[in-house]
Simulated assay, not measured.
Amino acid sequence: MEHADYVYTTGMDDADLEERLRTGDHGVLALADGDDAYAVPLSYHYDGERFLLRVSDHGDAEKRQYLETTDTATFVCYDTTGDESWSIHIRGPVRQSDRDIDEGTLNEWFPPFHLFDEAVEDVEFVLYELEPAAVTGRETVD
C-alpha cells in the first residue's frame, strides 16, 4: 500500500465537541461482557450536563446483560459529508437513569424510534446515563 489515500485530522476543541454533541442525536454504544463485545446503535440526548441514552426494552435479554456487565462503555457518534468528517468517543460508566421522564419529553429529546419486527405496544424505553469520564473528538483538517 504505497499510495493509500488519506486525510489529515486534528483534535476538536471544547466548543466544537459541545456543539456536535448538542446537535447530534444518534451513535453506537459499545459494551462488553468479559471477552465478548456487543455494539448497538442508539439515540441520545445531551444537554451540556447529562448524556442520556434511550434503550428499547422488548425482551432483548442480550442487550440488558451487556448493559449490566459493562464497567466502562464507549459511545461513538460521527458524521461524514464529502471530504469533511468528524467523530467523538465518550468513555465512562453507563447506568440506568433514575430520572422520571414523561413521554412528551422523550419525544422532544429523541428522534422517532425505528421499529423492526416489534409491535408498538411491546416496546418500552429505559433511560441510561453515560457518565463521560473521557471525551475525545477528531475532525478533518481543511
Rank of each mutant, 00 (worst) to 15 (best):
R138S: 07
G27T: 05
Q65Y: 07
G59T: 15
E103H: 04
E62F: 12
L52V: 04
R22G: 02
V94W: 00
V135H: 00
G34L: 07
H89D: 13
T136R: 13
N107I: 01
D13T: 02
L42Q: 05
E103Q: 09
E49N: 12
P93V: 03
R91P: 01
A32G: 11
E118S: 11
A119E: 14
C77Q: 01
A133R: 15
G82N: 06
E49K: 13
W86C: 00
D14V: 09
V120Y: 04
Y78G: 00
E121A: 15
L52F: 06
D33M: 03
L106M: 10
E18P: 03
V94I: 12
V7Y: 10
F75E: 05
L21D: 02
D100K: 07
K63E: 11
G59H: 15
R99L: 10
I101K: 00
G48E: 10
E2I: 11
G34A: 07
D83W: 06
E68P: 00
V135C: 03
P93K: 09
R138T: 12
T70W: 09
D57K: 14
E118P: 07
E108M: 05
M12A: 05
G59V: 14
L67V: 08
T74E: 10
L17P: 06
P41W: 06
Y78A: 07
F116H: 07
T140E: 02
A61C: 12
R95E: 12
V94G: 01
E139I: 00
T23H: 13
F110P: 01
D47C: 06
H114K: 02
T105D: 14
S85F: 13
T74W: 05
L31V: 02
L29N: 03
T9M: 11
T105Q: 14
H89Y: 13
G24Q: 06
R95L: 04
S43N: 15
T74A: 13
D117W: 07
H58N: 15
L17F: 01
H3V: 09
E68G: 06
S56P: 10
H58L: 12
T140R: 02
Y78E: 09
T23P: 00
T136D: 09
V40K: 04
Q96M: 09
V126C: 04
D117F: 10
H3R: 15
F116K: 10
T23V: 13
G34Y: 03
R91E: 15
R138I: 08
G104D: 13
H58K: 13
G59F: 15
W86I: 02
R64C: 04
T69A: 11
I88F: 08
Q96P: 00
R22Q: 11
D83A: 14
P132V: 06
L21C: 08
E131Q: 14
F51N: 02
L127R: 09
G104Q: 12
G48V: 11
Y128M: 03
P132W: 08
Y8M: 12
V40S: 06
D98K: 00
P93H: 09
T81L: 10
P111G: 05
P41A: 01
G104Y: 02
D60Y: 10
L130Q: 03
